[in-house]
Design a protein around this nucleic acid. Structure first.
Lengths: 249, 249
DNA sequence: CGCCGGTTTGACGCTCTTCAACGGTTGTGG
DNA sequence: CCACAACCGTTGAAGAGCGTCAAACCGGCG
């Protein structure tokens, strides 16, 4: 296939970067991942990448842009289940599930590396350790889902937003997109509302509250954390569910 | 190891029963699963089976009783992320994650088949298709998590409870524990509240509402669905996220 | 300049929570 | 065999948190 080798490497490297925080990845395994990429695909902002219910034969590895999983309710309300950043294999689980039951959409312009399921199948057959790392990647999403259940089930409005800012800071840090307690986050307050199970009006008020409390500011697509300890406390945030530690897997 | 072969078979059969709804499982693969069981373990009600943060070297396959994943907040509130029924491999993901970031507790007396991670590792190395089925099993939990995010994020109180009743009916049906629109569910209203992100007082009121609407009754640990279509509509429930279809995986 | 998407603010209302009391059932010990 | 505690379910009244509706504001861009 005619894939730009530079781009394929860049995409694979991001995933490997994310995985190497959690376990060793040999250069050979990294090469297998890179060689599994069949195509690079670009999308504009606000596009639907994967549609609910459709049978899939390839998976999308995000390597630039901001993407989300979401579902729309009958009354028009939207719930974003998870935000995805560079290095996330956004629909890897479709390899085993064959279809996904929600939509995946771009919030900004986004670029993906495409990995055919056939290539993933070969990994499960010849590269058991690499296969376990891919499994890990889907289970990390699962752990993030569980934390989101806690968030929408039991956290207050301000804590929901604070929690999201904490989580994204660490996740962006692992792929080199956040540092010094600040990062770029091109979301509207309506997007934040969809991601936290609130309304945009209430998100606006809570952002003011967090700002006035000297914890964090979110303005012009820029998150600046002023009090990391305080923000984590306000969110009842603990990073353990992100599994930021190296172990044999 | 001295495992009662009858019990080991019964436990493995339940998991295989659940998997065979989604894909073919050869008798050989079923035997591999059965032989992976090293022990049978019993717990009384209200016991903690797996504690948050502890490194694990084996996983628990539930084959009798009702179990849940939960986390307690600082103010004492509890959120149940998922209820587990017979045939569920409740902490299979710890095989790859090495520890889990929430607790697993028994709601009733419960019986587990223990599978050492070492045996699971051998499956990933020698039985790729079976490994993918185990992967599937963890991703099914993940899909159930996503639906729970929708539930607590965007559904009304009565819809949350209605949704739980719908989901459990189908999940119990797949392992032969529900039929004719009724099933046994030994939960208190406080448990239901923890599972739906509400208070027990409000759960009580919503149960009355669902009962008065002629949709479902829950009394004496017994769920009786009077209007399956109506209940699904009230819950905005669609079974697609349970992947109740056979495909090559 | 005037539109347009996003943000901000106020007034009001509804859903769910909180607090509290009461009733039914089960189990236990005197 | 009854008294009593413990637990669960039920109901009422009051209140908080977040949603709804609506208007104004702001900056960017055609």
């Amino acid at each position: 296939m005619p894939v730009d080798p530079q781009l394929a490497s860049a995409a694979a490297d991001l995933l490997v970067m994310k995985l190497r925080i959690r376990d060793e990845v040999s250069d050979e395994e990294a090469a297998v991942l890179r060689d599994s990429i069949s195509e690079i695909r670009d999308y504009g902002p606000g596009r639907t990448i994967v549609r609910s219910g459709v049978t899939l034969t390839e998976s999308n590895l995000l390597f630039d842009g901001l993407v989300c999983r979401f579902k729309d309710m009958l009354d028009g309300e939207r719930q974003i289940m998870e935000l995805h950043v560079a290095g996330d294999f956004v629909d890897l689980h479709s390899f085993v599930l064959k279809r996904i039951e929600h939509n995946i959409g771009s919030l900004t312009a986004a670029r993906f590396a495409i990995v055919p399921h056939e290539a993933l199948r070969r990994i499960t057959e010849g590269w058991p350790h690499l296969a376990r790392l891919l499994w890990f990647s889907t289970l990390l999403d699962s752990a993030i889902h569980r934390e989101k259940i806690i968030t929408v089930g039991r956290r207050s409005a301000s804590a929901r937003i604070a929690h999201l800012f904490c989580e994204l800071y660490l996740r962006l840090q692992t792929v080199g997109l956040a540092a010094d307690l600040r990062y770029h986050l091109p979301l509207t307050q309506a997007d934040l509302a969809d991601a936290s199970g609130l309304t945009s009006v209430h998100v606006n008020r809570m952002l003011k509250e967090l700002r006035d409390a000297g914890l964090v500011t979110f303005r012009g697509s820029e998150v600046v954390i002023h009090d990391w300890e305080g923000l984590q406390q306000a969110a009842e945030f603990s990073p353990s569910y992100l599994y930021l530690e190296r172990r044999e897997r």
